[in-house]
Design a protein around this nucleic acid. Structure first.
Lengths: 372, 372
DNA sequence: TTTATCTACGCAACCGGTTGCGTTAGCTTA
DNA sequence: TAAGCTAACGCAACCGGTTGCGTAGATAAA
């Protein structure tokens, strides 16, 4: 190891302080370029925007000068003029450290990737905002949209009767939803904003049908609370499939839980201690399913024919579990793209052709579900 | 199911178009409040900022009026005045869909959570920006910082001799690094900006020492290219530990790879087909380790004494693998917080006390590493 | 040569806040 | 009663671009 290893700071803060360069506050402005070019501000502004009323030669001269000075137009000044910021915001709970709910939620990254990609191609910036809860929840939207930090916002983690919607409508703040929520309102033509989501109900139904098709009759559903739409919808899909197959719904088999691996683990331990445990488990998410499978293993129960497990999400990890996990894959990237497209349409004032998008999750059958 | 299920759109785009509310362009301004209150703009501005030169009664009256009108100050206008945007940007490759490299990288979420949390407490917005590559790479920074979309930026995915640093220094664009990179420059007092990172070298050394301590002598290191610092540093730590234990370095055991589970899987398959396979594998990341363990299982090799596996990252998932994965846990949240603190210090012009932060990863020993 | 037309650019207001400084009303003091 | 002082607030410039309109000068047409 060199004498100055990574653990030994090379210089004290004081020395750095003397070195820390002044902030580069004096960036060239249009006025500066105008002065140097011997023309008026307005001429520079027009030349930089390739306005044909400025002759080609002058345009070129000014553009060269701007490039040479490393000129970049000031976003705030532009925004102020246009009453637009060309920025969209994503508000997410998964960023909250305290709840811990979404800690390392692989979802958010995929969603963000889709959003960032699509936003970039529409020349929009993306602002990332933590959701607040309780009293301060709406204040976030007021600050971001009322204060013009962003032109529009993408809402996530929707709840039934989500009071954010009424608020946003009342103020006519442009937004789109990740997750449907305002169905009744929309039915009554009261809620005009678009939404997109993966069809959780249908996915859970298909997954449950898959288990039923394999011969399972005692199927437990683990996970989720009663707060968010995605939780409720997946549970509803589960019940729907049972009903269609004329299987009785046993409330003891439909078990609320948190969303961590640990929750899946502990609940499965309990389940397996029953006199007549279920032969299959639908875990509300892949993360939960990981805990379920581990608990089975620890209890000496082999996951497969006698004890099948299905998840929901389609994390890349699933195919590397033991056994590989059957799941419903969500096209999250795609959702992100679509949300941005919808929001851009709202901001342009041109309604999207199809304002309500349901993407279908894809059933991926692997070895964790087998015929009973 | 209700007659109008989620799969049937309830209304055509055209109808929605008629309903889509006008964008709320006319939000109250200071001038509007001034008009209604019968005072000057400046008085309103001062009253809203609780300027003591405005008597309490007037202040209250104006503040009430503002609240009643739902007034929120326009961010762009404020930024224009202050030559600050109170926004920091994070530039990340993990958002790029095309590279696919960071698809669902759980890291980014944890980092973002830390960043968002700390930024909020400093009253900063967070802008999320995709990294570009090649020719357009620097243009991103020029646009964001030169155009004042953000006051400063957090760089990730640092490379040796990263030309972004010279660029940012030249333009005196405020920034901090996630990952140390400019050690040589700093040594020469040429690079004044702060950085923070998890000590990858030390982590890999400790992990390798752990394997050596268990009696392993043929230890393979799987993963990583030669591009990023974190890859190189982890590899360096591995070699360091070998050298200190007087074990020979066998280049055939140090295998470059991609960063997906699949890469770990395929390479381990190969390794296991050797005449004398290694008895332990250091996977450069937990994600890769998942593939390694799966390959071992598929080959009938039991992970444990005869074939130990260690990862790096400390994903929550690790303890639910079979067997639970030994790993080096990174305090990513903490890194996010610290990066923001450092950047804020730079923006304030007050140098941080300790501008170069190395957080130590924590060795978490589980069943995947056992004595040989 | 005079008038009409067009080209190329300048002037100034504006977006929505902020801030230095000036002004007025009201009160105190000599 | 006049001079002096302060409290309370207005005026106007400013941040950095954008844009409607006006105009000087060049050119073309009569």
């Amino acid at each position: 190891m060199a004498s100055a290893g990574p653990n030994e700071p090379r210089q004290s803060g004081e020395q750095l302080g003397q070195m820390l360069p002044e902030l580069n506050t004096a960036r060239p402005t249009i006025a500066e370029i105008a002065r140097r070019a011997g023309v008026n501000k307005s001429t520079v502004s027009r030349a930089l925007r390739d306005d044909p009323s400025i002759p080609q030669a002058t345009r070129q001269r000014i553009q060269d000068l701007a490039a040479q000075l490393n000129y970049v137009p000031n976003a705030s000044a532009r925004h102020l003029n246009h009453a637009r910021t060309d920025t969209i915001a994503l508000v997410s709970r998964a960023l909250n450290l305290d709840t811990g709910a979404g800690s390392a939620d692989p979802f958010l990254v995929e969603l963000l990737a889709g959003i960032a990609d699509e936003a970039a191609s529409h020349h929009f910036d993306v602002l990332l905002v933590r959701a607040e809860e309780g009293e301060r929840e709406l204040g976030v939207y007021q600050r971001i949209l009322g204060g013009r930090h962003a032109d529009g916002v993408i809402l996530t983690d929707l709840r039934p009767n989500d009071h954010r919607l009424a608020y946003l409508c009342r103020h006519r703040y442009p937004h789109v939803l990740f997750g449907r929520s305002a169905e009744d309102l929309a039915e009554a033509r009261l809620y005009p904003y678009p939404w997109a989501e993966v069809d959780n109900r249908s996915g859970a139904r298909i997954g449950t049908e898959h288990l039923i098709g394999l011969g399972h009759r005692r199927i437990a559903f683990i996970g989720g609370g009663d707060t968010y739409h995605w939780e409720r919808d997946r549970r509803a899909g589960y019940r729907e499939a049972l009903a269609q197959a004329n299987l009785p719904y046993d409330p003891r088999l439909c078990i609320p839980s948190g969303i961590s691996q640990k929750d899946g683990y502990l609940l499965t331990q309990q389940l397996l201690s029953w006199e007549e445990p279920p032969t299959a488990i639908f875990a509300i998410s892949d993360v939960l399913a990981v805990g379920v499978m581990r608990a089975a293993l620890d209890a000496g129960v082999q996951v497969g024919p006698a004890f099948s497990v299905i998840g929901f999400d389609g994390l890349g990890l699933g195919s590397y579990l033991t056994p590989p996990l059957t799941t419903l894959r969500q096209p999250i990237n795609e959702v992100g793209r679509i949300l941005v497209q919808l929001l851009c349409a709202v901001l342009r004032g041109t309604p999207p052709e199809e304002p309500h998008v349901f993407l279908q999750p894809e059933l991926i059958v692997r070895a964790s579900t087998r015929g009973y």
